[in-house]
Structures are given as C-alpha cells and as structure tokens.
C-alpha cells in the first residue's frame, strides 16, 4: 500500500538530485571553471535522464491493462520506482559496513542478488539510452561530455586557452598552448557545441517529463487499490476505519478500499 507514496517520493528524490548537481554545475561555469563545470554537466544530464527512463518504464508497464496477478503487477511498479531512487551497482546490502575494501573481490562488490524480491541493479547507460530514444543524439552528446569530464583529451582542451598557431618561414606550423586564463569563453571542437545544443533541446522537455510522470499517478493508485481489494481487503479490518486508507488515495479506509 506504500506504492503511491513511493511514487510521489521517487519524483521528489529524482528532482532533488537534479537541483543539487545542477546548481553546482552552473556555479562552476560561472566561476570560470569549465572542467569541473562539464564534469557536473555530465552528472546533471545523468540525473535528469533518470526521469525519462522512469517515465518510459512506467508507461510500458501501465500499458498492461489486465494483469494476471494484481500483486505482482504492483510489485513491478514498486521495483521501477525503487530502481530510480535506490538503484545500485555496488553491493550495498552486503558491504555497507565494510572497512577492508582491499580484500573485496569483484564478485562481492557487484550487486547481483535481488533485495526483498526486487531487482535494484542499475546503470546510468540505461537511462541515457532512454533519453536517446526521446531525443536523438543524446547518447552521442553524453559520450562527448564524458570525453571532457574524464581525464581525456577533452579535459585538456578545457584547461588551455584558445591556442595560438603560426607558420614559420620554413613552413612549419607551431601551435602555442597555454594553461587557461580566467576567460568566460573556451575553445572546443564543434562537436562539443553540438553536444551542448542536444542537451539544451532535450532538457527543454524536462517539465513535460515531470507532467508525464504525474499523469501516471491515477493509474498507479488504481493498480494499488485493485491489488488491495482483490487480495488484501481482509487485512484492512485490522486498521482503524477512520485512518487514511493505505492505498494512498487520501480518503479514510472505511470509505475507500475497506468499503
């Protein structure tokens, strides 16, 4: 019966992560630190794309209108929401108190077993691919951002000024690179500009995704109520009839699923 509450919380957590990382990103760019700015831009894009992924997975699941097992149907919704907030690659359940990391084998580090019947395995590329399906070019843009956020050539471009080139009398071309001064502009390959434009046009749709997500709430509530009424109504007799109904409708149990 917590599924509807978790539905609301999943959105709040996803948005809070976007806000925190996004604020950091913006202030790094404004402070004239494009390398840390791009690193956080990549992270912001990852956090924002989780919402697209969540919408696509919910949409596909809610398209099943006549589930064979109403409880399994709600459990799957639960899993989709839980992955968006608590998804992991590292095996936290087993290692949360580990202090000897040197001896942790790969098999012990990786999260593979389900937790309480829920599969919480997640990697960010799933979300990036979902965003790419909605905004073509998003994955390429993400990979370009990675090239600038990792200690690769892109990161080197971001820490130097616009290079000065000249050809000497022998016809040899010289390129003078200098570590960046605090200028608000950075010289980068055209593909970087293209990546920023893709990110821009994709993030313009962020509010639509939030609306889309909110739009699934009535159907999630309906699925929870169906599961409660078909399989769990007897348990409702244990509750005070004037307490809020556990389905999350906001009505009192007596006038909601218990009725």
């Amino acid at each position: 019966g917590n599924t509807t509450t978790e539905f609301d919380q999943a959105l709040a957590f996803a948005l809070a992560r976007v806000v925190e990382v996004g604020e950091g990103c913006s202030s790094e760019f404004r402070a004239g630190r494009p390398l840390s700015g791009v690193t956080l831009l990549r992270a912001t894009v990852e956090h924002a794309s989780v919402l697209v992924h969540l919408c696509r997975k919910l949409s596909a699941h809610l398209a099943i209108t006549k589930p064979a097992n109403s409880v399994a149907y709600v459990t799957k919704i639960e899993e989709i929401l839980a992955v968006a907030v608590f998804g992991t690659r590292f095996n936290w359940p087993q290692n949360i108190n580990s202090d000897d990391l040197a001896t942790l084998e790969r098999k012990e580090r990786e999260y593979t077993k389900d937790e309480n019947g829920l599969n919480l395995r997640a990697q960010v590329m799933d979300a990036i691919d979902s965003a790419d399906a909605e905004c073509p070019g998003f994955r390429a843009a993400y990979e370009i951002l990675c090239e600038f956020a990792h200690p690769n050539i892109g990161a080197t471009w971001l820490v130097n000024d616009v290079p000065v080139q000249h050809v000497d009398s022998m016809g040899i071309q010289w390129i003078a690179r200098r570590l960046r001064s605090q200028s608000p502009d950075v010289a980068v390959p055209h593909a970087f500009g293209a990546a920023v434009r893709v990110v821009d046009s994709c993030l313009l749709r962020f509010r639509d995704w939030v609306e889309q997500y909110r739009g699934y709430r009535p159907r999630v509530l309906q699925a929870v109520q169906f599961a409660v009424r078909t399989t769990g109504r007897s348990a409702l007799a244990l509750l005070n009839p004037y307490d809020p109904c556990p389905c999350g409708s906001g009505a009192k149990a007596k006038f909601c699923c218990r009725a």
């Binding site: 709040a12 996004g22 913006s26 912001t44 616009v162 608000p184 010289a187 980068v188 962020f206 939030v210």
Partner: peptide, 24 residues
Amino acid sequence: LATISCPAIAEIVDRLVADATREI
C-alpha cells in the same frame, strides 16, 4: 575550433534547476 561561452551553458542548467525546483 569553436568558442563556447561558459555563462551560456550555465543558463541552460539554471533553467533546468528552476524547472526541477518548481516541481518539488
């Protein structure tokens, strides 16, 4: 090479943050 403006990227991200903040 192209020149990108850091404040322009910050504006893109600020808009996202404003959208997300409004929804929380």
